[in-house]
């Protein structure tokens, strides 16, 4: 189990272009394939990773690993996630690799960037309307309202993400209790 977590996150780490929320669909796919977490629990893990300090993708890896196999699992998943970064950056810096110049790299990123955009968009879709089975309920409506409110706070008032999360938490207490 520990090795499986480590190698799975090592694989994800190698292709985690874009970092952050772009990696969520990859983690989610593996979590579902291995049956590590219930879909609802995974959704909670993503929310918790976004609320916690530090990088979102490694936070999610830690939470998934921890939920699946306790503290050793959390450490194994996190290590798997960051080791490719270590190896690749050291290798590229050692070779004094320059990204700007190469036309190959530029063309590759030209195709990769919209894919990452699509990944993040899918993460939002899936995170927002995961279950679908319960259909359109009042919770869906209130979630959409809170989401829209948060977008206004983020764009119009340029509030810090943490302040927006706190506001949404308060809104949740007001609406749901």
């Amino acid at each position: 189990m520990i090795w499986q977590l480590f190698f799975t996150f090592l694989k994800i780490g190698c292709v985690s272009f874009g970092g952050g929320y772009a990696v969520i669909p990859m983690i989610q796919y593996e979590v579902e394939a291995h049956g590590w977490l219930e879909p609802e629990r995974f959704q909670q893990a993503v929310a918790m990773a976004g609320m916690s300090p530090g990088p979102i993708s490694t936070n999610t890896a830690t939470l998934v690993g921890y939920d699946a196999a306790g503290i050793p699992g959390g450490i194994a998943a996190t290590l798997g996630m960051v080791l490719p970064s270590l190896a690749i950056i050291v290798l590229l810096s050692a070779l004094f690799f320059r990204f700007q110049g190469s036309k190959w790299i530029k063309s590759s990123l030209y195709g990769l960037r919209p894919i990452i955009t699509g990944m993040i968009a899918y993460a939002a879709l899936h995170f927002g309307f995961l279950s679908g089975k319960e259909g359109f309920t009042w919770t869906t409506v209130s979630t959409l309202v809170i989401c829209a409110g948060c977008l206004v706070l983020l764009t119009r008032y340029k509030l810090h993400p943490l302040a927006v999360i706190a506001a949404a938490g308060v809104a949740g207490i007001v609406i749901y209790t």
Binding site: I24, A47, G50, F127, C150, P161, I165, V170, A171, I175
Partner: peptide, 11 residues
């Protein structure tokens, strides 16, 4: 439950 909406907004 409320924070769920905020995370969708952040994504």
């Amino acid at each position: 439950k409320g924070i769920h909406g905020a995370v969708i907004a952040l994504i």
